[in-house]
């Protein structure tokens, strides 16, 4: 079997953007922040990697995970509940005179 073709820089960047977008789709604060931070860490970690085998195995794992994240974000937003106290707006807006 020939050595795997490494993904191009552009492909990886596209994947990075797509994963970040999928992570933002989570409605719960903790999941959203975790997956955003994790995606950033993972892609920063691979930024200076030049080994084609490692790059392509990373790419395939990341592609698979992107599909999982997309589905999970949908499920999560379907059953999304109240916001967490930390992300809640501090100013109470009320209609009317006061």
């Amino acid at each position: 079997m020939s050595p795997p073709v490494p993904p191009s820089r552009k492909t990886l960047l596209h994947l990075y953007a797509a994963t970040l977008r999928a992570s933002r789709g989570f409605s719960s604060y903790n999941f959203r922040n975790y997956f955003l931070a994790r995606t950033k860490d993972a892609f920063r970690g691979i930024q200076n990697e030049s080994d084609p085998a490692k790059l392509s195995s990373f790419y395939h794992a990341a592609v698979e995970e992107l599909a999982v994240l997309k589905r999970s974000a949908i499920v999560n937003s379907l059953y999304g509940g109240w916001k967490l106290v930390v992300e809640k707006d501090k100013i109470e807006r009320t209609r009317g005179v006061n």
Binding site: N30, V68, L69, S72, K83, L84, V85
Partner: peptide, 17 residues
């Protein structure tokens, strides 16, 4: 608003994955 969850020894949230 939901309270902050700091009781991970009791149970943990199910990971979306």
């Amino acid at each position: 608003a939901r309270p902050i969850y700091l009781d991970m020894q009791a149970t943990t949230p199910v990971d979306p994955r």
